[in-house]
Each structure stands twice: as structure tokens, then as C-alpha cells.
Write a protein that binds this DNA or RNA. Sequence first.
DNA 1: AGCACGCCGACT
DNA 2: GTCGGCGTGCTC
Length: 720
Amino acid sequence: MGSRTAQILFPVNVPGAFDYAVPDPMRLSRGEFVFAPIGKQMKLGVVMSLGEAEPGRALKEIAEIKATRALPLAMLDFIDWVARYNVASPGQVLRMVLRSWKALDPSPVATLYEPTGDRPLNLTPARRAALSEGGPFPARASEIAARAGISPGVVKGLVKTGLMRSELRPVDAPYPVPNPDRAGRDLTEAQSVAARELVTQVQKDRFSVSLLDGVTGSGKTEVYFEAVAEALRQGRQVLILVPEIALTQAGLARFAQRFGAEPVAWHSSITDTERRRGWREVASGRAQLVVGARSALFLPFAKLGLIVVDEEHDTSFKQEEGVIYNARDMSVLRGRLEDRPVILASATPSLESLHNAQSGRYAHIVLPERPGAITLPDIDLIDMKVHKPETGAFLSAPMVQAVADSISRGEQSLLYMNRRGYAPLILCRACGERLKSPDTDSWLVEHRATGRAVCHLTGFSMRMPRECPKCGAEDGLTSIGPGVERIADEIQTHFPQTRVEILSSDTTATPDEIKARLGRMEQGEIDILVGTQMVVKGHNFPKLTFVGVVDGDLLMGGADPRAGERTYQTLVQVAGRAGRADKAGEALIQTHHPEHEALQALVAGDRDLFVGVEMAMREMLGLPPYGRIAAVILWGPDLKKVKDLAKDFVTKAPRADGVEILGPSEAPIARLRGLYRQRLFIRADPDVNLSKYMTTWRAKQKRIPTKYKIQIDIDPQSFM
DNA sequence: AGCACGCCGACT
DNA sequence: GTCGGCGTGCTC
């Protein structure tokens, strides 16, 4: 008779799950949480699978089953697949799933107090205050005390007199239930057709991917809301992934408006309490609507009905640290494992998704522009080789003129400059020294507002020095190049009477400040807004009619094969800010490369033109979506050792047809936080299983010193 | 991820 | 002499 075993996965970075003996009376199922001895400690792990013991192999015994809800089985598969696809250990993936350990325990309870409603007689002032000003009830004694300006002891005293009652309540209350049948906005005929198609996919009750492709103002959100409503009607849960930047109160409000209940908001900076509550409510199946950043994909949904990835092209879906993954791609994977539909929505879809739509793997649902809706502005290019600004200036004459025209019409302008601070480079005229971060190969950016020199990669900052730290020359330091602060200065000198403000993460650190500034913009209290990436999303300003892109070339060049695509996507979004219902706005883009196809397509308003040219180029080079890429970054404290490690690692590459290896070479950021970085590139034909290839490759590398790391990035988005 | 083991320098 | 620094290796 064979005894039973279980494979237990621990949330630690070991290659896989460990085998344990299941003690005889224990009833155990997959997904359950158990305590088991590992080394000298007792750890919490998850039962991945059950089996029969092979004779003659001594195994330790599982100690105990934890009394908590088991992980859904689809989640176990998902953990395994995510690990394999991204060349990570399943333990690391489990650790992402278990970000909130406390969620496995029952909710903590709090004592809440409320008035019994008995007629108060002869009350002391403190007691009267507690009853009249302590509300809303029920509440904690400390909350009532704070509101009434009394001490918590008074509240407890009222319980003794019978004027208040106390009650133990779980701290983690259920979320309000969304109502799918609240009326949404009226849909046009084209929108209804698209919505019906998506609803049909939800009703089919199995895996499918739909690319919802519609320009700004085509009502994408309203259309996918219909599919969300259908999944909610089925009593299932819906996950909507949005870029981190969209997770503001304003961003969440539209979900609350449509479904009459605040959704679960999930992102990296929610409090522990919210995280615990959200995790538990999602795991129980009670929380129905989750709006979150990429990490929400690892929540243990009990009955997932639909996943929506909004702005699917957005680069913030790529996790760049720890387990490196792309939440958009992992959404499709999860949809497949759960056998549920996935919707990818975008005004500027990624070439990967477009390719999948064209080849029929995804349903392609195209929304036409809505008549009477916000229309895209007229877009023109300014050739900076022709319209050179004066030395030290960055705005060309046509750009300044366009702002002047907008001001004279009493309208607003937006200048887009995706660089924080005043100047990206501080140079010594005397000796040529460029100010750098002490342990990182990146220039310090001058921030004039705070008088500091800042490293944008590491956060290092110092007081802006008066003399050159190298040669000591006084007043030799010069600011080279523009940032938002400098552009704001420049435009202000052109128009001293206008109200110019900056919107960047430096000038507006808190959500309240952002809200306030956007509010002033909406109210027309700002004439010219100079902003970074922060201005791109959402917000429509009715009086904004001109958008100027200060540097249309910023994203081009370098090793990034998606630079053209991202330039196009960003500029469409930025230019779209100037859209108006009654008349088209205007957008001007300053560039040194007016011939670039991304810019030409933008001017022509012809996305297909750009996509066609870009696809042809990708196909010729065998790049995504016509091939696969991976990156390897090797880093450590000693330059020579990192170089040797990289060379040695390359010699271990398995032989395979259709795989090319480039490098090793110095990474663009050659030194980061004191660590030297070398980089490899791998390009493979589409039929190569690149994840498997990289796994085999890494297995050939024996252990390396702990201070050295080999990081594998499947389908890299960042090329630094 | 922990935890132990082991090999080096600064104290009682 | 030993206390403890952290670099290295292992956990079914």
C-alpha cells in the first residue's frame, strides 16, 4: 500500500515545489494552505498536487492544515505558467499572490458603538456631545470621541447607562454590490453593435480575446461596460486592469457612476487594511468588481467572469522588478487558464495585439469615431532644422505664434515636454565635466524650483553646487537642454501677463495637488499648462485648443525597437487633449526628423499607414510580433567580473535553430547604484519556445556569487 | 527567503 | 582565547 504525498510550494525563491508525506488521517486537497517543516523552520505553503510515495524515499510530514480558504485551482495553474513563461521560480510568483499574508486569517474585529435611542435624562455635557455630535454611528469609541471632542471613556460610560450599545464587527466589511442594470450612457448604433459583440463573448462562457480598437472619444469605456455588466449579471467577478496613472479618485469615479458602487481599487500603494480586505473579499467571491494596476492580476478570484485590459498598449503593464512580467500578456494567459473572455481596449493598440487581431487569433472590434464627439486636432510638424530657436531657447517661432493665437482667442494651451526639472544636463564650461550621480551612470538633472541636482534613476539629490566639483571653477556650470521648468520659464518670458503652470510629479506630488491643478485648468484659471506624461491621460479641458509637443524626437533613437510605436502612441494621446466637440483643435510637434513615418502618419491622421510601415520593418528584422525577443542583464560590483560572467554565460548558450544572440555589451545604464551592468539580446523565430530556451540556458549556469545577478526579461519593453 | 556553517578581524 | 561580521549553500 503506497502512502500519500503532496507537493508543497513555499513562497520562497527555490526552483520548485517540495515533496512531503501526508500523515494518515489528514484529508488534503489541492490549493489548501499547510504548515510544513522546511530546514529548521515551519513554513506556510500551498498544496500544488497530490501523489503516491515512491518506495525508499524518506519524506518529512506535513504538520498541519491552515484553517482558511484554499487557493482556486486555476490559480495554481496560473502560478506555474507565469513562472515558466517569465523564467522565474514558482515560489516567487506565489509570493506575489500572497502579498497580504493577513488576508488568510479571519478579519480582525472592532467594538463599535451606537445610541440605543433611549430618552436621555440629566445628561452631562460630555455625554450629550457624544450622542449628538459623535455620529455617524456605529463607530469606534475613539472616532466618536474625536468627533465630539470628549474622551473615549465617556462612550463606554454611556453603554453602562444603557444609552449606547456596543457590538463586535469585523473590520473588513464586504464591498457594496455593483448593479449591472443601472442605465449606462446611450450608445450610438455602432457602439451598440460593438457592445453586443462583446456581450456575446461573455455569454459564450469560454476563453476568447477581443481587441476593442477605437479612437479617443469613440466611447470605448461605455462599450466594454456592457460586457462588464453582463459578467456581473452572471454573478461573476470582473477584473479591469488600468495603467497606474488612471487609478485616481477621478479615474475610479466613472466605474462607481456606472455600477452604483465603488469598485475594489487595487494598486501598489493601498494600505495594509485595504489590501487585506480586498484580497479576502476577492477570494470569497463577494467582491465583484476590481479595478487595479498590474498586480491585481494576481488576486485569487473565486469566480472570475471577465478580464478587461484598458489602454492595453500602455508600458506600465510591464513589471520591471522581481518577477518580470507583462500584465497584458498574463491577462490573456489567465483568461485561457480560467476559460473566460478577455477584452483588450486601446485607441492605439500595440502592434502585437493588432497582429493577433489581423491573423484572427483575436476578435477585432473597431469603433468608428462618434459624430459630434471630440475630434482629433489638426496636427502639423515643425522642422527644427528650419525653425531654429535662438541659443538657449527651445520653442520655435511657429510654436510661440500658435500659443499667441490661442491666447488672443481667450483659449488655453498645453505644452508637452516629457522631462522633469529645469535642464537634463549640468556641464562645466571650464573643464567639460558633466555632473553625475555618485554611483550611477546618469546625468544629474537640474531642478531650479528646489535648487537641487537630482538623479532621476536612483532619487539621489544634492544642493545645486556653485562651483564645479571637479575643477573648482566658479560660475562655470551651465544648464544644457530643456525640462518642463525651463519651458515654463521660456513661455512666460514670451507672455509675461499669462498664467503659466507646471504639471509634473515634482510640482504636484499628492493626488490632491494634481486634482487642484487640473481643476484650475478646467475652470480656465490657467492659460498655459506645461506638463510631463502626467497630462496625457484622461482629462478633457473644454477651453484647450492648442497642444505643442516640445520634443517629438525624445522617444526615438536608441536600441528600442518599439521607439517609433511609442512615439506614435504618445503623440496621438497628447495631441488628443486639444480635441473639442464643436471644432477641431490644433497640435504642433517640433522635430528634427519630420520625415519619420510615425510623424508622417500622425499628420496624415492615417494609423494604417504607420502600422503598415512599422509591421513591414518588424517582419524584415524578425522582431515582435514576427519574432520573439529576450534580454539578459548581468550585474555586480566588479566591472571585470561582470564582464567575465557575461562572456562565460554566452558560451553556455544552448545551440538552437532560429535563435540569435547579440552581446554581451555594456548596458545603456552601465552602472546603477554602484553595480556594473552588462547586457545580452536574444532574438528568436516565432516558432521557438523562448521561455523554455532561456530556462535551459540558465540551468547550465552554476551558482554565482550572491552579489552578482543574472536577470532574464522575456519580451523586454525597456532597453536601459 | 531564512538559517547554519565557516572563515576572518576586534575585543575581554 | 572567543564574539560576531557576512559570504556561501541548502532546504523535500
